[in-house]
């Protein structure tokens, strides 16, 4: 199986550790993942903000970058949903050969938990993470991809991890891409309630499959010194007894929790 990683522009730029975690988990399971350097962005921000014409070249470059792979794994629910649900819409508008290209590539694109559970057939990835974790199902993974209980099945199989229920879990955190700045007050009101729910859950760590949502929730937590950390699912699944919880970067920037980020990249340890 020729396997590619679509890191997403957001993770590439702000959360490289999540990408490293994906590589690490897959390698542990015996799969090498390629990183096509021509990849950039799925075009979601442009598409969702009304700049649909500007999304066309991005969709085209996505097809070019990932054509020929058997599967593309993406550590983001919303970017996966953009590719699978909306690239066809952009392509239809653009015409030419793009619709056919999207039809070939998009069905092979999987969100990280989908890839592990559905393609690899794994729920126990050999991870160890001795903390209590609440899982927030991000909206696009919940309602567009319908990932269902895949992430929680993966989390339940992690040794040492205690999964606790997140109250009102299916409510949006209020990130919503440019919504977070265009409707900043509403976005923050929604995010504040999500932070309250996370606190109510009693978890140490709030986990999700989208670093974008976690940046918003984590940004609120950090400002409020709320004392919870946010972590991408991949970053939890990457942890083992040999390498417990060493993410130097994470969207959970909670200084109070003692996981403050370092300035220099920590030595990358794999295997």
């Amino acid at each position: 199986m020729r396997l590619a990683l679509f890191i997403t522009c957001f993770n590439d730029t702000l959360f490289p550790e999540t990408g490293k975690s994906v590589v690490r988990v897959l390698r542990r399971l015996g799969h090498e993942v390629e990183f096509p350097y021509d990849q950039v962005c799925c075009g979601q921000m442009h598409f969702n903000s009304g700049y649909r014409e500007d999304a066309v070249p991005l969709v085209r470059s996505f097809v070019d970058a990932f054509e020929g792979y058997d599967a593309v794994v993406v550590p983001s629910g919303s970017c996966t949903a953009m590719v699978r649900e909306y690239h066809a819409v952009v392509a239809r508008q653009a015409g030419g050969t793009l619709p056919a290209g999207v039809a070939r590539v998009a069905p092979k694109v999987y969100e990280f938990s989908e890839f592990l559970v559905d393609v690899l057939g794994v729920t126990d990835v050999g991870a160890y993470f001795p903390h209590s974790v609440a899982y927030h199902p991000t909206c696009h993974s919940l309602r567009l991809l319908r990932v269902g209980d895949r992430p929680t099945r993966l989390l339940r199989a992690v040794r040492g991890l205690t999964l606790v229920d997140l109250p009102r879990a299916d409510e949006c955190c209020g990130f919503g891409g440019t919504f977070a700045v265009k409707n900043v007050d509403t976005s923050v009101a929604m995010g504040g309630d999500k932070v309250s729910a996370a606190l109510e859950s009693g978890a140490q760590v709030l986990c999700a499959g989208d670093n974008s949502c976690l940046t918003h929730i984590g940004g609120l937590i950090s400002r409020q010194h709320a004392g919870i950390r946010v972590l991408h699912l991949a970053d939890i699944l990457a942890c083992t007894e040999a390498l417990p919880d060493l993410q130097p970067y994470g969207p959970g920037l909670d200084i109070a929790s003692g996981f403050a980020a370092e300035q220099t990249p920590a030595p990358e340890v794999t295997r």
């Binding site: 890191i7 730029t13 702000l14 490289p16 690490r24 090498e32 350097y37 920037l253 990358e268």
Partner: peptide, 24 residues
């Protein structure tokens, strides 16, 4: 930033890391 912090961009992006280390 009115009500939220944000992570500072890391010194090395994923693509740079991948290139530098051949994917680790």
């Amino acid at each position: 930033f009115a009500d939220r912090d944000a992570p500072a961009p890391p010194a090395e992006s994923f693509r740079s890391w991948y290139k530098r280390t051949d994917g680790g």
